[in-house]
Design a protein around this nucleic acid. Structure first.
Length: 641
RNA sequence: GCCAACGUAGCUCAACGGUAGAGCACUGGUUUUGUAAACCAGCGGUUGAGGGUUCGAUUCCCUCCGUUGGCUCCA
């Protein structure tokens, strides 16, 4: 008899050889009906798997994430069969479940096009309707290799597979595919109304750009149609937050064929930009930073010395002036090093914290550009800290505090941190790496911050800490980075005079907090869906006269708001008030103040704010003081009470 | 860079071998309005660029440029 321990701790008996499915049936017919796979002694298995001896077993249904993942994986196989039935010459490569769906990589000379999705889906529904069982076939590695000898992809997969037993799954009309499994018991377990082919894109075999480009067909499947619809709706909503769309709607920035990858910031976008920078500067002053500015074009020799020529040439732009070769800077550090070298330094000056909003150019292959978040020209909120080794930890703590203060102010409370350590290819002694890495780790410990360790992922010149924030759609973005560098100071022979009157080499810390200002602005726009917090909003208030009978009062109110340093405009069009309000909502202006004869008489305004239909009357002075206070507090809450 | 798709008025889209059309925006006029879009008229395009096929190309073919979705890389 098999003794089966269930997740609730209870133990059941079943004849040896009873399958996972049998046991689900024994527990209850409802569960058996819902069961997709089992987790037997911690491992996911098919329902047809026999259970012997003492075992721990959990029945997995679609309710769990694991169940949904199996469902998606099985659906990938069904899609593979559908595709193979349409294009018999298609060769299958690899088809896993991924976040929100699945894909299958396929080697097929004819291109699969979006127009083909309908018939792929139709075929999939046919396969599901036939409700044929998924059957597992096992064999040893040798037999499997022999069986697949003519298939370069499956042979490769077998060679990469672990263990001695290689399994295949068959379902439908004789379709069979190499697969570790497990799978749902039968194709009919998938809701034919809950699946959708999403897209097709190229993908390199093994993710290697030198390998063949395969066709990757993406699909999604959910527990039921309702969940699919919710997912599709979520995608629609995410699309509406796209910073490229909002940037156009709100007239913040544009891109032009004349300069691919180079953003044009419009006056309204520039207001956001300057608001970010004003705040950034004030916080940096508070944290003891000075600011510098280094040239964009510098002699090529500098870049040989810095190592960029050897390591970064492919991403750089070059130019020639008077027969001398120059490079357009892709990073700010070499310029910062020259500033350091223009004076002699003492340990007494340390730490030197020198910030630079540096405009850098990096060549990006055309297919990689994306709105503001991936461009060829951007402004880094860079800084270089020069200090002694024993000052590293306190400096790192200082940077972390600065990072957290900035992120919080912009509404990003959700972030995680990664610490990357010494890679195989590195320069510098083990001792200095030890000091540097423990300084980073200790700084994080001192702040009580949890972090993820990425062993061997550091830069060749030093370990680093990366900051990743999550936006309102839970998408993760890498923003900040802190990198310890022992290489540049040596290459550039930086020195300082120590207490003992000897010349020593300082440590350099590179750090960026917002990363690229262009990208950060794009992320902010998506995070807020264009509804910027008051202190960042390009237009904070719009004054809406009821008719031109009150336009004088509207002009007077606007003038008072402007004197109070508020960003506002007046809608003097001959539209009705409802139309003015609708337009102002559309323009995502946080506050609108309606003024008519009633307000003009009492020196008040009727305030209405973003997303609300409510409005309240307050005196102009009170309105100014409340709004000013919200701006000073960087409040994200525009509610007006 | 690679694979695929797309490129029509400032924006969003239609027409898909036979003289290019709508809504919004813009301009002028009417309306003088009380809380999410009044009415009328007008302006606006060698259909991304270049070449080819055709009596005729926005439509079919080729090259280039740009954009989008992925892959690889990255702030």
């Amino acid at each position: 008899m098999a003794e089966i321990e269930l997740p609730d701790g209870s133990v059941r008996e079943a004849p040896d050889g009873a399958t996972v499915g049998d046991i689900a049936q024994q527990i209850g017919p409802g569960l058996a009906k819902a069961a997709l796979v089992g987790r037997l002694n911690g491992e996911l298995v098919d329902l047809s798997t026999p259970v012997c001896g003492r075992a721990r077993l959990e029945i997995i249904t679609t309710k769990s994430d694991a169940g949904l993942e199996v469902l998606r994986h099985s659906c990938a196989h069904i899609m593979a069969e559908a595709i193979c039935s349409i294009w018999p010459q298609a060769r299958l490569v690899y088809g896993p479940a991924v976040r929100d769906g699945f894909y299958y990589d396929i080697d097929l000379d004819t291109a699969i096009r979006p127009e083909d999705f309908d018939r792929i889906e139709a075929k999939m529904r046919e396969i599901i309707k036939a409700d044929t069982p998924f059957q597992r076939i096992e064999m040893n590695r040798e037999d499997a290799l022999q069986k697949m000898a003519r298939d370069v992809y499956k042979t490769d997969n077998i060679q990469r597979a672990e263990g001695d037993v290689i399994s295949f799954y068959s379902h439908g009309d004789g379709f069979q595919d190499l697969c570790r499994g497990p799978h749902v018991p039968a194709t009919g377990r998938i809701d034919p109304k809950a699946l959708k082919i999403m897209s097709v894109a190229g993908a390199y075999w093994h993710g290697d750009a030198s390998e063949k480009m395969l066709q990757r067909v993406y699909g999604t499947v959910w527990r039921n149609k309702k969940e699919l619809d919710e997912y599709l709706h979520m995608l629609e909503e995410a699309k509406k937050r796209d910073h490229r769309l909002i940037g156009r709607q709100m007239d913040l920035f544009s891109f032009h064929e004349e300069g691919p990858g180079f953003a044009f910031l419009h006056p309204k976008g520039m207001v956001i930009w300057n608001a970010i920078i004003d705040f950034w500067r004030s916080v940096h002053r508070k944290y003891g930073y000075e600011e510098c500015k280094t040239p964009i074009i510098l002699n090529e020799a500098l870049w040989h010395r810095s190592g960029h020529w050897d390591n970064y040439k492919e991403n750089m732009y070059f130019t020639t002036v008077d027969n001398v070769n120059y490079a357009i800077k892709p990073m700010n550090c070499p310029g910062g090093l020259l500033i350091y070298k223009s004076n002699k330094h003492s340990y007494r000056e340390f730490p030197i914290r020198m910030a630079e909003l540096g405009l850098v150019h990096r060549y990006e292959p055309s297919g990689q550009m994306h709105g503001l978040v991936r461009v060829r020209q951007f402004t880094q909120d860079d800084a270089h800290i020069f200090c002694m080794p024993e000052q590293i930890q306190q400096e790192i703590v200082g940077v972390i505090n600065l990072v957290m203060e900035l992120y919080r102010a912009f509404g990003f409370g959700d972030y995680h941190i990664e610490l990357s350590t010494k890679p195989d290819k590195h320069i510098g002694s083990d001792e200095i790496w030890e000091i540097a890495t423990s300084a980073l780790a200790n700084a994080l410990k001192e702040k009580g911050i949890d972090y993820q360790l990425n062993p061997g992922d550091g830069a060749f010149y030093g370990p680093k800490i990366d900051f990743h924030i999550a936006d309102c759609l839970k998408r993760s973005w890498q923003l900040g980075t802190i990198q310890l560098d022992f290489s540049m100071p040596e290459r550039f022979e930086l020195t300082y005079t120590d207490k003992d009157n000897t010349e020593k080499t300082p440590v350099m810390i590179h750090r960026a907090i917002l990363g690229s200002l262009e990208r950060f602005m794009g992320i902010l726009i998506e995070h807020y869906g264009g509804h910027m917090p008051l202190w960042l909003a390009p237009e904070q208030i719009r004054v809406l006269p009821i008719s031109d009978k009150t336009s004088d009062y509207a002009v007077a109110v606007t003038a008072r708001l402007k004197r109070a340093n508020l960003r506002c405009s007046t809608d003097m069009s001959s539209e009705k008030i409802g139309a003015k309000i609708a337009k102002t909502h559309g323009d995502k202006v946080p506050y609108m103040v309606v003024v008519g004869p009633k307000e003009a008489e009492t020196d008040t305004v009727s305030v209405r704010w973003a997303g609300q239909t409510e409005n309240i009357a307050v005196s102009v002075d009170k309105f100014i003081s409340i709004v000013t206070e919200k701006i000073d507090d960087k409040s994200a809450d525009v509610a007006f009470k």
